[in-house]
Amino acid sequence: MVGGLFIIITSQNYLKKVVGLAIFQTAVFVFFVSLAKVLDGTAPILTKMENAYSNPLPHVLILTAIVVGVATSALGLALVLQIYRNYETIEEKEIQSLELKSDK
């Protein structure tokens, strides 16, 4: 998770920033699902036998969150593409210098 945050802050490339965001997100998901684990339990699909099931509630939350996460990162990619069309670069420093030039 910290790795994802690190990538977001340190990379200059906007596509890598989007990837870093996705990694950050996935780390949170893994943490959530690990809370749902019950030792010696099985997947929450009911069977005839009585046994322990892992907690289905975090699974539901994460399942929807994954799909939403992909949709939002697609939105981020679309923004990156638009930035590229307007500035012809996706490196943060270059865009800054271009902006400064056009402001003068």
């Binding site: 749902a36 019950v38 997947a43 929450p44 892992s54 975090p58 699974h59 994954i66």
Partner: peptide, 18 residues
Amino acid sequence: LDAVDVAFTEAAVGSGIS
């Protein structure tokens, strides 16, 4: 971690479409 539904979604959505 016994979350088959989530694994299914992640495999289809995360590593497929994304």
